[in-house]
Nucleic acid binder design. Sequence first.
DNA 1: CGTTGCGTTGAATAAGGTCAAATAGAGTGG
DNA 2: CCACTCTATTTGACCTTATTCAACGCAACG
Lengths: 261, 261
Amino acid sequence: MTASSCSLPMTAPEPGVCDDDARLGCRALGAASAGCVCCSLRFHCLSSDLAQSEVAQFSALVLCRRHLKDGQALYRAGDAFAALYLVRTGLVKSIVLNEGGREQVSGFYMPGEMVGVDGIAAGKHASDAVALGDTDVCVLPYERLEKLSHRAPAIDRHLHRILSKEVVRKQSMMLLLGSLRAEERIASFLLNLSQRFTARGFSACDFVLRMTREEIGSLLGMQLETVSRVFSRMHKEGLIQIDGKHVRLLSPQGLRRMIGN
Amino acid sequence: MTASSCSLPMTAPEPGVCDDDARLGCRALGAASAGCVCCSLRFHCLSSDLAQSEVAQFSALVLCRRHLKDGQALYRAGDAFAALYLVRTGLVKSIVLNEGGREQVSGFYMPGEMVGVDGIAAGKHASDAVALGDTDVCVLPYERLEKLSHRAPAIDRHLHRILSKEVVRKQSMMLLLGSLRAEERIASFLLNLSQRFTARGFSACDFVLRMTREEIGSLLGMQLETVSRVFSRMHKEGLIQIDGKHVRLLSPQGLRRMIGN
DNA sequence: CGTTGCGTTGAATAAGGTCAAATAGAGTGG
DNA sequence: CCACTCTATTTGACCTTATTCAACGCAACG
């Protein structure tokens, strides 16, 4: 998972430049760090059509990383927006709160996925981001990222794509919330996780849910009891095997049929 | 509404350069067109902290406009992504379809709002965009926009903000769909429209819904009958006055209280 | 070993969906 | 101008689904 045994050339961060450190509560990366160039997540964080030099430039952006323990917040709604984050290990959940105090999980972010883009719009975060279990993130100071993206068109384009992808993702969550029933939502959720695990080289059909039933329910717009019941029913029907947080998809095909395809 | 009597200097599109015309099905703008600099929507489309020169550069991007009649599509899901669109007059609805054939309205776009950003991610549109009533849009060829944004950092930043704002918007729709009940959804919808009308200089409490009950229901994740019933109930309770598509908010305060604030 | 958080399950209830029918309005063609 | 058609909307009756409330099991932890 780590990129320790890598000795490819990279642009080292200028020493002493990381005045973001204190503000962002992160630890600086020494020149020893191999950076993005040979990070195993490189092709999740970054487009494959970036030149090596661009990857190195991007890498130089990541002045520091942050480690979060279970339940610790990366940022809170209302916090000044200073950086975007790329999950390295672990899992981050993002939570939106409306004025009426109601809150909802708006997404789970896996290694290689970017957290925090909702802060760009207003210069302050619109949601909380909280670690589920031990989690590491790379910190991308936004001002530096902006400056870099003016120099490196490919990186700018990549950023646009990431932002757009987030729109598409939320849009398909809207579709799920607005027009699927409980069973279909769960099926869709499981298949989505499966697909993302696969893309990261993990088993497609056998994984552990780091989040609680309540958090799943919150994301999918249903009560935790309903989540539990649907899991139980799917289990009885032989579609999945579920033991606490450990899930095994016995019939991905059957799940796919449930959501109509 | 039009910016006809404006004679400020602007960068005219180079003649003969609009080879996008045929592809995008739009008509070219003559040099006679006043462009964005004195468009009444300027401060909706564009950030107020753009310099005049930057606005002119942006304006030069808009090589053509498109007029759409009621029900006509700006693009369809799967179409190659070539441009972003800024609504000038009228209303555009965007519709997502999932694999199972289910579809849902994912947003209504008013003058000054940008349509089409979900196409950036994959290079093809993820939704349909259809005009509700006569509608005009400005066409922003995306490749040119990208090139411009490398030359003009402020425009790039503005684009990032627009994309992020779209994420925030979808995110709050997720919250609505996942945790509000029918009445609260409608209240939220009406207040949102009201706020957007206000921002455009129209009455905050007296407006016409261009969309059908079914389209409203689709956006809000409920059946058209439920939409109708909620309108009727709100009417009885003296919160709104509703006559077909004509709405008057009698107690915006009361509506706000419904969603808990 | 009691406490606490998470998960499961059951029974009663409420909210919204579905089906059906009636009405209203806009647009069309005679 | 009127009859006709088509679509949008409203309303009622009934039914399905998911929520709510409550009880209980289980595992981790101090």
